[in-house]
Design a protein around this nucleic acid. Structure first.
Lengths: 198, 198
DNA sequence: GACGACACGTGAAAC
DNA sequence: TGTTTCACGTGTCGT
């Protein structure tokens, strides 16, 4: 049942490892190489309607139909970036409406809002070393610090270059981007035998 | 016993609300203005030893003494940034060693590792609009995009200024090479954790 | 009391 | 095997 939501074309051999050898630059390359978890672009509301279909012994939670309205399967097949292999717990067989019916829904909504934010944070951070949430946060922090230091050095260099030739700023160049390679090469290991230049 | 870990000087009036007005810019100002939650710098291992002391009906979990070794109280008083008001659930009255004794510890360790990462992500992101985790992630993503666009514009400006006056490049800079970013950078592995750009 | 945000313990999958 | 990461439901606290 799981394979219906995640088409087999996006499935990978279980021997993952050692992909994306020299892909690097810093231009936000797409990250659709492996997908070990659900860390991909959250196209719309996707990770909402997972129970009742994914898990065979689904919970009988009365999900509100205007919120968890699952898209037609054609649209589902067009977007192979749902969570490939679910890791967590099953949606529990609870739902005895004792005193927390909408609470579990609200918590679920909050949870996958947070997961969406994780997804699009991962979309803007290159070189995410591992796929954990913790590593993503650490890489985001180091990337922000690195970007900030690069901005500082570039500002300093721009000031020096501009006081060298004050007329340079008013010209229109052919917009060829350059990347300063000293002091910010920073080869980062992505696995056992792969690296990426940031 | 609780007050020893969290000194009363860091306690807040219960009427929190409306902090972090316009503090921002982007220069990594310190964020020690209000502390509505535990989003502060995680000085060392602090959020580990919280149960059994904070909650009156604490769990009787046998925490390993070499991991949750709390620092001397003098160091604790010097750093008043523990979590002020705990929000979550109590550490459950379980701990019946049926089949998951170290599992709850491992999960707890993972949880506050993630919280530490949240803390030091929050340390490098300015303008954190609200104190939620979700807002922090969203602000981090937008801040990364903003920093990146600023780097791009600064690089373009630097290049224009440098190709206007080519004597600036041969100035006293320490071998500042420039590398065009459109062509592939070939990283060659020299060992297990070393690489060379050729 | 309802809503929002967190942390907790726990089952289950991946490594 | 054991370790690690994740999602789930739930209790609790503060608006």
């Amino acid at each position: 049942m799981d394979d219906l939501l995640c088409p087999p074309s996006s499935f990978l051999p279980p021997t993952s490892s050692s992909q994306f050898c020299t892909v690097g630059h810093q231009v936000l390359e797409f990250v659709s190489q492996d997908l070990p978890e659900q860390w991909l672009f959250h196209d719309g509301m996707m990770s909402k309607n997972v129970d009742g279909e994914l898990w065979p012994m689904g919970s009988t939670l009365p999900r509100s139909p205007q919120l968890s309205e699952l898209p037609p399967p054609s649209l589902l097949l067009a977007n192979p970036q749902c969570h490939a292999k679910r890791r967590g717990r099953k949606p529990g067989p609870r739902s005895d409406g004792r005193h927390s019916v909408g609470h579990v829904q609200a918590e679920r909504q909050r949870r996958d809002k947070l997961n969406r934010r994780f997804c699009d944070l991962r979309a803007v951070v290159p070189n995410v070393s591992r796929m954990d949430k913790a590593s993503l946060l650490a890489d985001a922090a180091t990337y922000i610090a690195e970007l900030r230091s690069r901005v500082a050095s570039l500002e300093e260099e721009t000031n020096k270059a501009l006081e060298e030739s004050p007329t340079a700023a008013s010209r229109g160049g052919p917009a060829s981007k350059f990347l300063q390679v000293d002091e910010t090469v920073e080869v980062r290991m992505m696995g056992r035998d792969a690296a990426a230049v940031v």
